[in-house]
Design a protein around this nucleic acid. Sequence first.
DNA 1: ATAGGTGCAAATGTTTTGCTGTCAA
DNA 2: TTGACAGCAAAACATTTGCACCTAT
Lengths: 132, 132
Amino acid sequence: MGNKTERYSRQKEEIYRILRNTNTHPVAEWIHKQAKRKISRLSLGTVYRNLNHLCQKGEIKKFTFGTQLEHYEGNIKPHQHFVCKRCGRIFDFFLDVNEEILAKTKKLRKFRVEEVEVEFRGTCFDCRMTSK
Amino acid sequence: MGNKTERYSRQKEEIYRILRNTNTHPVAEWIHKQAKRKISRLSLGTVYRNLNHLCQKGEIKKFTFGTQLEHYEGNIKPHQHFVCKRCGRIFDFFLDVNEEILAKTKKLRKFRVEEVEVEFRGTCFDCRMTSK
DNA sequence: ATAGGTGCAAATGTTTTGCTGTCAA
DNA sequence: TTGACAGCAAAACATTTGCACCTAT
Protein backbone atom coordinates (compact mmCIF):
# COMPACT_ATOMS: atom_id res chain seq x y z
CA MET A 1 0.00 0.00 0.00
CA GLY A 2 1.05 3.57 -0.48
CA ASN A 3 2.43 2.69 -3.90
CA LYS A 4 0.96 4.57 -6.80
CA THR A 5 -0.32 2.65 -9.78
CA GLU A 6 2.14 3.33 -12.54
CA ARG A 7 0.71 4.56 -15.79
CA TYR A 8 1.97 4.52 -19.35
CA SER A 9 3.31 7.67 -21.00
CA ARG A 10 5.04 8.32 -24.32
CA GLN A 11 7.51 10.52 -22.50
CA LYS A 12 8.69 7.86 -20.08
CA GLU A 13 8.79 5.27 -22.84
CA GLU A 14 10.94 7.44 -25.06
CA ILE A 15 13.33 8.42 -22.28
CA TYR A 16 13.80 4.79 -21.33
CA ARG A 17 14.25 3.76 -24.97
CA ILE A 18 16.97 6.36 -25.50
CA LEU A 19 18.82 5.21 -22.43
CA ARG A 20 18.63 1.55 -23.45
CA ASN A 21 19.96 2.33 -26.91
CA THR A 22 23.14 4.13 -26.02
CA ASN A 23 26.25 2.83 -24.39
CA THR A 24 27.18 6.31 -23.22
CA HIS A 25 26.33 7.70 -19.79
CA PRO A 26 24.38 10.83 -20.62
CA VAL A 27 23.16 13.68 -18.43
CA ALA A 28 19.53 14.83 -18.25
CA GLU A 29 20.09 17.70 -20.68
CA TRP A 30 21.36 15.37 -23.40
CA ILE A 31 18.50 12.93 -22.93
CA HIS A 32 16.10 15.85 -23.10
CA LYS A 33 17.58 17.05 -26.38
CA GLN A 34 17.37 13.59 -27.94
CA ALA A 35 13.82 12.95 -26.77
CA LYS A 36 12.60 16.29 -28.11
CA ARG A 37 13.23 15.05 -31.62
CA LYS A 38 10.18 12.85 -31.15
CA ILE A 39 8.28 14.76 -28.50
CA SER A 40 8.92 18.39 -29.24
CA ARG A 41 7.09 19.84 -26.24
CA LEU A 42 8.83 17.61 -23.73
CA SER A 43 9.99 19.57 -20.71
CA LEU A 44 13.19 19.08 -18.79
CA GLY A 45 11.24 18.67 -15.55
CA THR A 46 9.45 15.68 -17.00
CA VAL A 47 12.77 14.16 -17.98
CA TYR A 48 14.04 14.49 -14.42
CA ARG A 49 10.83 13.09 -12.96
CA ASN A 50 10.93 10.05 -15.20
CA LEU A 51 14.61 9.45 -14.65
CA ASN A 52 13.94 9.43 -10.92
CA HIS A 53 11.04 7.02 -11.30
CA LEU A 54 13.11 4.68 -13.43
CA CYS A 55 15.93 4.80 -10.86
CA GLN A 56 13.57 3.94 -8.03
CA LYS A 57 12.24 0.98 -9.97
CA GLY A 58 15.81 -0.09 -10.61
CA GLU A 59 15.42 0.02 -14.38
CA ILE A 60 18.21 2.52 -14.83
CA LYS A 61 21.11 3.71 -12.69
CA LYS A 62 22.54 7.06 -11.71
CA PHE A 63 26.19 8.03 -11.29
CA THR A 64 28.16 11.18 -10.63
CA PHE A 65 31.59 10.23 -11.96
CA GLY A 66 33.25 13.06 -10.10
CA THR A 67 31.46 15.70 -12.12
CA GLN A 68 28.81 18.03 -10.77
CA LEU A 69 26.13 16.40 -12.93
CA GLU A 70 24.17 13.21 -12.66
CA HIS A 71 24.83 10.69 -15.40
CA TYR A 72 22.26 8.04 -16.24
CA GLU A 73 22.73 4.55 -17.59
CA GLY A 74 20.28 2.09 -19.11
CA ASN A 75 22.51 -0.96 -18.89
CA ILE A 76 21.94 -2.40 -15.44
CA LYS A 77 23.92 -5.59 -15.99
CA PRO A 78 26.81 -5.64 -13.51
CA HIS A 79 29.90 -3.98 -14.90
CA GLN A 80 32.47 -1.36 -13.96
CA HIS A 81 33.26 2.16 -15.11
CA PHE A 82 36.52 3.70 -16.14
CA VAL A 83 36.83 7.49 -16.06
CA CYS A 84 39.69 9.07 -18.00
CA LYS A 85 41.32 11.70 -15.84
CA ARG A 86 42.33 13.77 -18.84
CA CYS A 87 39.37 13.80 -21.21
CA GLY A 88 36.69 12.81 -18.74
CA ARG A 89 35.22 10.16 -21.03
CA ILE A 90 33.59 7.17 -19.39
CA PHE A 91 34.13 3.60 -20.58
CA ASP A 92 32.41 0.39 -19.56
CA PHE A 93 34.55 -2.48 -18.33
CA PHE A 94 33.24 -5.99 -18.02
CA LEU A 95 35.70 -7.61 -15.66
CA ASP A 96 34.72 -10.60 -13.65
CA VAL A 97 35.27 -9.07 -10.22
CA ASN A 98 31.98 -8.00 -8.65
CA GLU A 99 31.04 -11.42 -7.30
CA GLU A 100 34.50 -11.99 -5.88
CA ILE A 101 34.40 -8.70 -4.05
CA LEU A 102 30.95 -9.39 -2.69
CA ALA A 103 32.12 -12.79 -1.46
CA LYS A 104 34.66 -11.04 0.72
CA THR A 105 31.92 -9.15 2.50
CA LYS A 106 30.08 -12.29 3.57
CA LYS A 107 32.11 -12.50 6.74
CA LEU A 108 30.97 -9.05 7.84
CA ARG A 109 28.10 -10.06 10.08
CA LYS A 110 27.18 -6.50 10.94
CA PHE A 111 26.38 -5.51 7.39
CA ARG A 112 24.17 -7.02 4.76
CA VAL A 113 26.01 -6.02 1.62
CA GLU A 114 23.72 -6.14 -1.40
CA GLU A 115 25.51 -4.29 -4.17
CA VAL A 116 28.96 -3.21 -5.18
CA GLU A 117 30.10 -0.49 -7.57
CA VAL A 118 33.62 -0.41 -8.92
CA GLU A 119 35.01 2.70 -10.55
CA PHE A 120 38.43 2.98 -12.15
CA ARG A 121 40.38 6.12 -12.94
CA GLY A 122 43.37 6.59 -15.19
CA THR A 123 44.29 7.48 -18.74
CA CYS A 124 42.53 6.21 -21.85
CA PHE A 125 44.17 5.12 -25.06
CA ASP A 126 43.60 8.33 -27.01
CA CYS A 127 44.94 10.54 -24.25
CA ARG A 128 48.04 8.41 -23.82
CA MET A 129 48.80 8.87 -27.52
CA THR A 130 48.15 12.58 -27.50
CA SER A 131 50.81 13.55 -24.97
CA LYS A 132 52.93 10.59 -24.04
CA MET B 1 55.67 26.96 -14.60
CA GLY B 2 52.03 27.96 -14.49
CA ASN B 3 51.82 26.63 -10.96
CA LYS B 4 51.05 29.08 -8.23
CA THR B 5 53.21 29.16 -5.14
CA GLU B 6 51.11 27.84 -2.31
CA ARG B 7 50.93 29.98 0.79
CA TYR B 8 50.08 29.21 4.41
CA SER B 9 46.72 30.18 5.86
CA ARG B 10 45.01 29.48 9.18
CA GLN B 11 41.82 28.70 7.32
CA LYS B 12 43.28 25.96 5.17
CA GLU B 13 45.17 24.53 8.13
CA GLU B 14 42.06 24.32 10.26
CA ILE B 15 39.92 22.80 7.50
CA TYR B 16 42.53 20.16 6.86
CA ARG B 17 42.93 19.46 10.58
CA ILE B 18 39.19 18.93 11.02
CA LEU B 19 39.08 16.53 8.12
CA ARG B 20 42.03 14.52 9.41
CA ASN B 21 40.47 14.22 12.84
CA THR B 22 37.13 12.73 11.95
CA ASN B 23 36.30 9.35 10.52
CA THR B 24 33.03 10.65 9.13
CA HIS B 25 32.58 11.91 5.59
CA PRO B 26 31.27 15.43 6.10
CA VAL B 27 29.87 17.96 3.65
CA ALA B 28 31.20 21.52 3.27
CA GLU B 29 28.50 23.01 5.48
CA TRP B 30 29.46 20.80 8.42
CA ILE B 31 33.15 21.53 8.03
CA HIS B 32 32.33 25.22 7.88
CA LYS B 33 30.36 25.04 11.11
CA GLN B 34 33.16 23.21 12.90
CA ALA B 35 35.89 25.53 11.67
CA LYS B 36 33.96 28.64 12.68
CA ARG B 37 34.43 27.66 16.30
CA LYS B 38 38.07 28.70 15.88
CA ILE B 39 37.81 31.16 13.01
CA SER B 40 34.52 32.91 13.50
CA ARG B 41 34.60 35.02 10.33
CA LEU B 42 35.38 32.08 8.07
CA SER B 43 33.22 32.13 4.98
CA LEU B 44 31.71 29.14 3.22
CA GLY B 45 33.30 30.19 -0.06
CA THR B 46 36.72 29.89 1.52
CA VAL B 47 35.86 26.43 2.76
CA TYR B 48 34.96 25.34 -0.76
CA ARG B 49 38.08 26.93 -2.23
CA ASN B 50 40.34 25.17 0.22
CA LEU B 51 38.58 21.86 -0.13
CA ASN B 52 39.14 22.07 -3.87
CA HIS B 53 42.81 22.93 -3.41
CA LEU B 54 43.31 20.03 -1.04
CA CYS B 55 41.59 17.69 -3.49
CA GLN B 56 43.82 18.82 -6.34
CA LYS B 57 46.89 18.20 -4.23
CA GLY B 58 45.51 14.77 -3.38
CA GLU B 59 45.53 15.45 0.36
CA ILE B 60 41.82 14.79 0.72
CA LYS B 61 39.19 13.06 -1.39
CA LYS B 62 35.70 13.90 -2.57
CA PHE B 63 32.72 11.58 -2.92
CA THR B 64 29.04 11.92 -3.75
CA PHE B 65 27.64 8.73 -2.25
CA GLY B 66 24.45 9.03 -4.27
CA THR B 67 23.40 12.22 -2.50
CA GLN B 68 23.24 15.63 -4.12
CA LEU B 69 26.08 16.90 -1.94
CA GLU B 70 29.82 16.46 -2.02
CA HIS B 71 31.30 14.60 0.92
CA TYR B 72 34.93 15.07 1.87
CA GLU B 73 37.35 12.66 3.49
CA GLY B 74 40.73 13.21 5.10
CA ASN B 75 41.77 9.57 5.17
CA ILE B 76 43.38 8.89 1.83
CA LYS B 77 44.64 5.41 2.69
CA PRO B 78 43.01 2.93 0.34
CA HIS B 79 39.74 1.59 1.68
CA GLN B 80 36.14 1.08 0.65
CA HIS B 81 32.84 2.70 1.56
CA PHE B 82 29.57 1.14 2.59
CA VAL B 83 26.40 3.21 2.23
CA CYS B 84 23.32 2.06 4.13
CA LYS B 85 20.32 2.21 1.82
CA ARG B 86 17.96 2.89 4.70
CA CYS B 87 19.67 5.43 6.97
CA GLY B 88 22.20 6.75 4.48
CA ARG B 89 25.10 6.47 6.91
CA ILE B 90 28.53 5.83 5.47
CA PHE B 91 30.95 3.29 6.94
CA ASP B 92 34.58 2.62 6.10
CA PHE B 93 35.57 -0.92 5.16
CA PHE B 94 39.16 -2.06 5.07
CA LEU B 95 39.01 -5.15 2.92
CA ASP B 96 42.06 -6.32 1.09
CA VAL B 97 40.63 -6.09 -2.42
CA ASN B 98 41.85 -2.96 -4.19
CA GLU B 99 45.17 -4.40 -5.32
CA GLU B 100 43.54 -7.58 -6.56
CA ILE B 101 41.09 -5.63 -8.63
CA LEU B 102 43.80 -3.44 -10.05
CA ALA B 103 45.79 -6.53 -10.98
CA LYS B 104 42.92 -7.64 -13.19
CA THR B 105 43.18 -4.43 -15.20
CA LYS B 106 46.81 -4.98 -16.12
CA LYS B 107 45.82 -6.98 -19.19
CA LEU B 108 43.86 -4.04 -20.58
CA ARG B 109 46.49 -2.58 -22.85
CA LYS B 110 44.31 0.27 -24.00
CA PHE B 111 43.90 1.79 -20.57
CA ARG B 112 46.37 2.80 -17.93
CA VAL B 113 44.32 2.20 -14.79
CA GLU B 114 45.72 4.16 -11.87
CA GLU B 115 43.07 4.09 -9.18
CA VAL B 116 40.06 2.09 -8.11
CA GLU B 117 37.14 3.02 -5.88
CA VAL B 118 34.86 0.39 -4.41
CA GLU B 119 31.50 1.32 -2.98
CA PHE B 120 29.12 -1.08 -1.27
CA ARG B 121 25.41 -0.65 -0.67
CA GLY B 122 23.14 -2.55 1.64
CA THR B 123 21.72 -2.49 5.15
CA CYS B 124 23.67 -1.64 8.28
CA PHE B 125 23.39 -3.37 11.64
CA ASP B 126 21.14 -0.82 13.31
CA CYS B 127 18.68 -0.73 10.42
CA ARG B 128 18.46 -4.50 10.27
CA MET B 129 17.49 -4.55 13.93
CA THR B 130 14.97 -1.76 13.60
CA SER B 131 12.65 -3.40 11.09
CA LYS B 132 13.67 -6.96 10.43
C1' DA C 1 56.26 44.89 -3.08
C1' DT C 2 53.90 41.09 -4.96
C1' DA C 3 50.55 37.76 -5.60
C1' DG C 4 47.92 34.27 -3.13
C1' DG C 5 44.22 34.01 0.20
C1' DT C 6 39.93 35.79 2.49
C1' DG C 7 35.16 37.55 3.25
C1' DC C 8 31.12 38.92 1.32
C1' DA C 9 27.58 38.86 -1.83
C1' DA C 10 25.96 37.99 -6.24
C1' DA C 11 25.87 34.75 -9.92
C1' DT C 12 25.60 30.16 -11.82
C1' DG C 13 23.61 25.99 -13.02
C1' DT C 14 21.34 21.72 -11.89
C1' DT C 15 17.50 19.61 -9.97
C1' DT C 16 13.03 19.99 -7.64
C1' DT C 17 8.46 21.58 -7.00
C1' DG C 18 3.80 23.97 -7.26
C1' DC C 19 0.19 24.62 -10.19
C1' DT C 20 -3.03 23.72 -13.77
C1' DG C 21 -4.45 21.08 -17.45
C1' DT C 22 -4.44 16.43 -19.84
C1' DC C 23 -4.93 11.67 -20.61
C1' DA C 24 -4.49 6.55 -19.45
C1' DA C 25 -7.06 3.10 -17.12
C1' DT D 1 -14.33 9.50 -13.38
C1' DT D 2 -10.02 9.92 -11.21
C1' DG D 3 -5.54 10.37 -10.11
C1' DA D 4 -1.02 9.78 -12.35
C1' DC D 5 1.54 12.37 -15.50
C1' DA D 6 2.83 16.46 -18.46
C1' DG D 7 4.30 21.28 -19.37
C1' DC D 8 5.71 25.52 -17.66
C1' DA D 9 7.91 28.54 -14.71
C1' DA D 10 9.43 29.63 -10.27
C1' DA D 11 11.96 28.02 -6.35
C1' DA D 12 15.47 25.68 -4.05
C1' DC D 13 19.97 24.57 -3.31
C1' DA D 14 24.92 23.64 -3.51
C1' DT D 15 28.84 25.44 -5.45
C1' DT D 16 31.48 29.02 -7.90
C1' DT D 17 33.09 33.55 -8.82
C1' DG D 18 34.06 38.75 -8.96
C1' DC D 19 35.81 42.22 -6.28
C1' DA D 20 38.14 44.81 -2.76
C1' DC D 21 40.94 44.05 1.05
C1' DC D 22 44.38 41.50 3.75
C1' DT D 23 48.68 39.08 4.63
C1' DA D 24 52.43 35.50 3.93
C1' DT D 25 56.64 35.50 1.70
